[in-house]
Simulated scan of single mutants.
Amino acid sequence: MAPSLLDMFRNLTSFEPQRGSLRGAPWEDFVDWAIAQGLAPLAAYNLEYRLGGADAPEWARDRLLSVYQGTVNDNVMRLVYFKRLVSALEGRKLLLLGGVAFADSLYPHGGFRPVLEIQILLRRLDVEGFSGFLAQHEFRPEPEEEPSGATRVLSDGRTLIALFADVLGPERREDLKGLFERAHPQKLYGPSIFRPDLEDAVLLVCLEQARQGYQMPWLSFVDLRELVTGATWMEGLYSRPLNVEVLKERARAWRLERALYTSLSILARLYPQTAAPVEAALPPLRRATRELLNRLVVEPSSVAGRRAALRGTDRLRRLLTGQ
């Protein structure tokens, strides 16, 4: 029996893919979808170097491999440039989010995880100052093509930097203060650059997913998989078990229990091997709330290749993020 799109997703985004033939798999659907979801680099590496091609058609292998090679080059260029840009910056506390935080901390190879933009969380009072610093390096404000929750987006024509502030809402600035206090130095990029603590990183990923109405690339669930399972392939900040009691308490304080439940429930459907850590980390919601979230968000968001947006997306965003 030929593998389904979901089967291909699970195997080709694993760090331990199962060997076997993928002849007859839905390659026409998978290749375009994987590229759009940010999964092509990891899938290409697995296909070429771990599975020996797995009887995939030549055109599919070539196309995925070209994306992988391009991603490796782009990531190196973008991250080396960012390091040069901020390494001498002192007296600030800037937290890395998304790909720039995860490419070298969750993935065995930096080329597996595309870094399309640099996402930074900073205090509201630092937005103008850091924007001014970037302006000295030819960065100019950019209009957002799609709402992302960023306070400001800047670009020098090559690198996009998205600045986020007050991500928990203005009424929870004390909680945000704690997030900054718990952050860990990322010395590679200089004295002003930090990464969120593990439990904070999980909640920030869930918050981003919820704010996007679960219309974000599925690469985000690979990030979440590694955070929840303790980044066992690495030896770094995120390579430890989750403190689930701390996670649940912060989710409650940040009013993100519904977002945490939804993201973790989708994760368990996409990657059944995460069921045990997910079950331990699920927040205590009323049964009626769980059933509503499962029906309206979890089930439709777990369908590989889905293109239609969730119904009532704006209302769901407010429901999931407590805003």
Rank of each mutant, 00 (worst) to 15 (best):
N46T: 11
N11D: 09
L282K: 10
G305P: 09
A34F: 01
P114S: 14
S87C: 11
Q215I: 02
A183D: 01
G190F: 01
P143G: 09
G178P: 01
R269M: 08
W59T: 06
A201E: 10
P147L: 14
A183R: 03
Y45W: 15
E181K: 15
V244F: 05
L227H: 10
H109M: 12
E226V: 01
G38D: 04
V167T: 10
R113M: 01
S66E: 15
R92D: 08
A281S: 15
F82M: 00
G213K: 14
I118L: 07
L22T: 04
E174C: 06
I193R: 03
L264E: 03
M234Y: 03
Q37P: 07
S301G: 11
C206T: 15
G111R: 08
L320C: 12
W27Q: 13
S302P: 04
T274S: 09
V127W: 07
L160A: 00
F194V: 01
L160Q: 00
A309T: 13
L204R: 08
E48K: 14
G169E: 04
R152I: 08
A101T: 09
E245Q: 13
E199G: 08
P141E: 12
P114E: 08
L320P: 11
V115D: 00
A40P: 05
S148M: 08
A280I: 02
G236S: 07
F15W: 04
R211H: 14
D200P: 04
R172N: 09
E174F: 07
D175S: 11
L319P: 02
D62K: 15
L188N: 01
L237Q: 06
T274W: 03
Y261S: 11
L163W: 04
E16I: 09
K187V: 01
A201C: 05
L203A: 12
Q37L: 07
R10W: 03
E181N: 13
L270M: 15
R182H: 11
R195F: 06
T71Q: 04
P241L: 02
G157Y: 13
R258H: 10
P185E: 09
V153S: 13
A40W: 02
V297D: 01
E257L: 03
L204W: 01
A304S: 14
T159E: 04
E128K: 15
L264H: 11
L65F: 12
P272S: 08
L316T: 07
Y68Q: 06
H109W: 12
E117G: 03
A56G: 13
